[in-house]
């Protein structure tokens, strides 16, 4: 039984900056390298984007202040934005939970067998390859639009289709293809976290559960495993949602920027279109700020739902 241990009270001798520094300074100093990089590469760009979003900036001439016009036009006048939002949400809600479930499923499978290290490395490798490599393979080999593409050939020889399907240009098939490729590459950090977390659930819980009448593996998972993993669920879901909002690499490599009829364009691709093809960096910064606020809001919401009560 744990005895309550009280943390020693540290008295602050004196007040003011000097005392503060003497007490906490060393810790801040240790954080400075990380803080510096974080400030330069994360905070500063966010602030810069916020600033640029209030201007008209075509990258070649100095920016010019125009107030909230960019935001107004974004919400009122931009049709493509809504298409991209729809696409992004589609991705987020399909690849998010599915990827989540797949990671968990595979982590759980691996947990049952011997040779965990081998399988976990093998399944993690797709995530390590860059989007370009992965997209090249899928674009040039598996989903090629002529009858020599692997999938087309398979389906034609099975007799399911007669003419090859142009996977990456046909509106109906682009989205499923991109989702499949994203899922394939989605066993990344989340998956590893699951793997580690599954090992951390104490075995006596399972035994206790069996005594109490847990009848099948499914019930085991629902009543014991998942609740024990609540912090990990929180972490992975936050990660995956935030990642889902910022997806664009796979879509760009597979379908091009912009994709035909904007069928798989995401918000970030829309932003890139405005920034570099149309030379409207101010507008693109406004999109970036909106995206930032949305993902930030979502992650806070998820925290609220899944935060543990302890």
């Amino acid at each position: 039984m744990a005895r309550a241990v009280s943390t020693p009270r540290v008295t602050m001798r004196g007040t003011g900056l000097v005392a503060f520094w003497r007490r906490w300074g060393i810790y801040y100093l240790m954080m400075t390298p990380w803080l510096a990089i974080f400030a330069t590469f994360t905070v500063l760009p966010v602030l810069a984007a916020a600033g640029l979003s209030l201007t008209y900036f075509n990258l070649l001439e100095p920016p010019r202040f125009i107030g909230l016009t960019n935001y107004r036009l974004l919400f009122v006048d931009d049709d493509i934005f809504y298409v991209t939002v729809r696409n992004t949400l589609y991705f987020a809600f399909i690849t998010g939970p599915l990827g989540f479930f797949l990671s968990f499923f595979f982590a759980w499978l691996i947990h049952q067998v011997r040779g965990r290290a081998f399988f976990s490395i093998a399944l993690y490798t797709p995530a390590m390859t860059s989007a370009i490599v992965l997209a090249t393979f899928f674009k040039q080999n598996l989903f090629t639009g002529d009858q020599y593409g692997i999938l087309n050939h398979l389906l034609i020889s099975l007799g399911i289709i007669q003419q090859p399907i142009i996977w990456l240009q046909d509106q109906r098939t682009m989205m499923p293809v991109v989702i499949i490729v994203t899922l394939w590459a989605s066993m990344n950090t989340g998956f590893l976290i699951w793997l580690a977390a599954l090992g951390s659930v104490p075995q006596d819980l399972y035994e206790a559960g069996k005594i109490d009448g847990v009848r099948s593996r499914l019930q085991e998972m629902w009543y014991i495993t998942l609740p024990s993993l609540k912090p990990q669920i929180l972490l992975t879901s936050v990660l995956s949602i935030v990642a889902a909002f910022g997806q664009f690499q796979i879509q760009q490599q597979l379908a091009g920027l912009p994709s035909p009829l904007y069928a798989v364009d995401t918000i970030v691709m829309h932003m890139l279109d405005y920034a570099f093809i149309r030379f409207e960096m101010g507008y693109a910064s406004a999109i970036a700020v909106v995206l930032f606020l949305v993902s930030f809001g979502c992650s806070r919401l998820l925290f609220r739902i899944f935060a543990s009560d302890e």
Partner: peptide
């Protein structure tokens, strides 16, 4: 399926 057999499904394609 995901790594090794995929080339085996291809009919020695010109790709």
């Amino acid at each position: 399926v995901t790594t090794a057999l995929v080339p085996a499904f291809s009919p020695a394609s010109p790709a």
